Computed example of a mutant assay.
Amino acid sequence: MRLFLPLTGFFVLAGSRLFAESFDRPIPQAQSATAELWYALACITLVLSMVVVQWLVSRR
């Protein structure tokens, strides 16, 4: 049993390298106008919320 354990590890590693596919890098897609609009709204909302928090904290 101890003799077969290293052999099975070797065959598993050798088999995984034989059937593995090469890595293809993903191609980045262009952003749509809708996505840019939502991103701009999110940025503006974040800045406004930080201004409100600063205003609330400074009042104390």
Rank of each mutant, 00 (worst) to 15 (best):
T8H: 06
G9C: 02
V12E: 00
L7P: 03
Q54M: 03
F23M: 06
A35T: 14
R17W: 09
E21M: 05
Y39N: 14
I27E: 15
C43K: 09
Q29S: 10
C43V: 15
F10Y: 02
R17M: 14
P6Q: 00
V52L: 06
P26R: 01
L46T: 14
L5Q: 02
Q31D: 13
R60W: 10
S58G: 12
L37E: 14
S16D: 03
R2Y: 04
A40E: 12
F10I: 12
L5M: 03
R60Q: 15
T8D: 07
M50C: 04
T45I: 13
P26F: 04
L13S: 04
W55T: 10
R60N: 13
L37T: 11
V12K: 02
L5E: 05
I44Q: 12
P26E: 07
V53L: 09
A33W: 14
P26H: 02
L37P: 05
S32T: 11
W55Q: 05
A35R: 15
A40P: 08
C43S: 11
E36Q: 13
W38E: 14
Q54N: 04
L13Y: 00
Q31C: 11
M50W: 01
A20M: 07
V53R: 00
L56N: 03
G15I: 00
D24V: 13
M50N: 09
Q54F: 01
E36G: 14
T8P: 01
M1H: 08
L7E: 05
E36I: 15
V57F: 02
Y39M: 14
A20F: 09
I44L: 12
P26L: 06
W55P: 00
V12A: 07
R17E: 11
I27N: 11
W38N: 13
A30R: 13
A30D: 15
W55Y: 07
A42N: 08
I44T: 10
A42R: 07
P6V: 02
R60S: 15
I27P: 04
S22V: 10
A30P: 15
F11V: 05
R17A: 13
A42C: 04
A14H: 06
C43N: 12
P28A: 11
R59H: 07
M50D: 02
R25W: 11
R60V: 11
A30N: 10
P28G: 10
G15Y: 00
R60H: 08
E21V: 07
R60P: 11
A35M: 13
L18D: 08
L48Y: 01
P28C: 08
G9Q: 09
Q54L: 12
T45Q: 03
F4C: 03
R60F: 10
M50Q: 05
F11S: 03
S32L: 05
A40Y: 10
L37W: 08
F23V: 04
A30G: 05
W38P: 06
V47P: 01
E21R: 11
R60G: 10
P26Q: 07
V53F: 03
A14N: 02
